[in-house]
Design a protein around this nucleic acid. Structure first.
Length: 305
RNA sequence: CGCGGGGUGGAGCAGUCUGGUAGCUCGUCGGGCUCAUAACCCGGAGGUCAAAGGUUCGAAUCCUUUCCCCGCAC
């Protein structure tokens, strides 16, 4: 089997690992300036590919003619795509004998798009899964080859769930690609009427609000942990939130209901702030934060108080 | 050189502007109270104030340099 692997994010890592011996070329997004100091940083997939000593290509535009030639020259059996980050043109997909095979982090046709895992958690879903799919020119609209499901834990974060899904994707890829290359696999057309969209995540969505319900804001916390990173504006400054739990307590929004564990009331319900991080500080327990900020039960962290 | 915050007993912080023998909450150790306790009371230990140099009678605090940590933006 000769495979070309398209991937960028951490979701794509386990699958690349499991298919490495069949992979003749890894395609990933170009290095981007990132982090403090704006130094150029390689994608997670590029880093792994290099340690596996696989050839790497990072075209700015995957549809560029010279890149298309490179793809065609590989005479690959299939393109395997997982969290690549660019739309692949029909010409690109047709550069391999069996076209593009996508590993998508949802039960298609639900949650088509860029952020299926985050959106599923945010919507309060209790299960999700991986769909192996024959790509076509649309966004996650191709024929379904296989679906496997996973329950979503009540306290599970996006990062944790993504890790489990990524492992599932890797094992499914290992199972199905030989069959696909051999031409022996089922194809089921998606029922478009059941589709939903899972749009890209914006940073502002990760802000928890005092006037939200604890249940929904907790889902928000889970959906955007660890990236882009949930946060909350308080009269103590911006707090990044690392670990929360639901609380049974109630009170006026923003009120400190308990100092150990640090429990703050929202509009409906309350949340325990187990680990957080003030701007410019290291992450710390809610208890330590309460100590340093001299918080007492009854005080408010709501901005305008 | 993208913008910014910070390094003070084990933890989180105050004190730095207006130099003058280091303070708060928590933890820890010992004792007490209690049926009991993560609760309460009493007492104790524990700090080269990131590092180096400089100014000064005197520096956590002022000046210079270095190291380390972190947030935002990307």
């Amino acid at each position: 089997m000769r495979l070309i692997y398209f991937g960028t994010g951490t979701f794509a890592l386990p699958t690349l690992q499991s298919l490495a011996e069949h992979t003749v070329l890894v395609v990933t997004q170009p290095d981007r300036p990132s982090g403090r100091g704006l130094r150029l940083a390689p994608s997670p997939v590029k880093t792994l590919a290099q340690s596996l000593e696989l050839p790497v290509a990072s075209p700015e535009r995957s549809r560029a003619p010279e890149f298309l030639e490179l793809l065609q020259s590989q005479e690959a059996d299939a393109l395997v795509v997982a969290s690549y980050g660019q739309i692949l043109s029909t010409a690109v997909l047709e550069s391999a004998r069996c076209g593009g095979i996508n590993l998508h982090g949802s039960i298609l046709p639900r949650y088509r798009g860029a952020a299926p895992i985050q959106r599923a958690i945010l919507e309060g879903e209790t299960q999700t899964g991986i769909t192996v799919m024959q790509m076509d020119k649309g966004m996650d609209t191709g024929d379904i080859i296989s679906i496997e499901r996973l329950p979503i834990g009540a306290d599970e974060t996006y990062g944790e769930l993504q890790d489990r899904l990524a492992e599932l994707a890797a094992s499914m890829a290992l199972t199905w690609l030989p069959k696909i290359v051999a031409g022996d696999y089922p194809r089921t057309v998606q029922v478009n009427a059941h589709m939903t969209l899972a749009g890209k995540v914006e940073k502002e969505e990760a802000e928890l609000k005092w006037d939200g319900s604890a249940e929904i804001e907790y889902r928000r916390f889970r959906a955007f942990t660890p990236t882009p990173g949930p946060f909350m504006k308080t009269n103590q400054g911006l707090l990044r939130l690392h670990s929360l739990r639901m609380s049974d307590l109630n009170g006026a929004p923003g009120t400190v209901l308990s100092v150990n564990p640090l429990t703050l009331a929202l509009d409906s319900g309350a949340l325990q702030f187990l680990e957080l991080q003030p701007e410019g500080k290291k992450r710390m327990s809610g208890r330590d934060f309460a100590n340093g900020a001299r918080l007492k039960v009854g005080m408010s962290l709501s901005e305008n108080q």
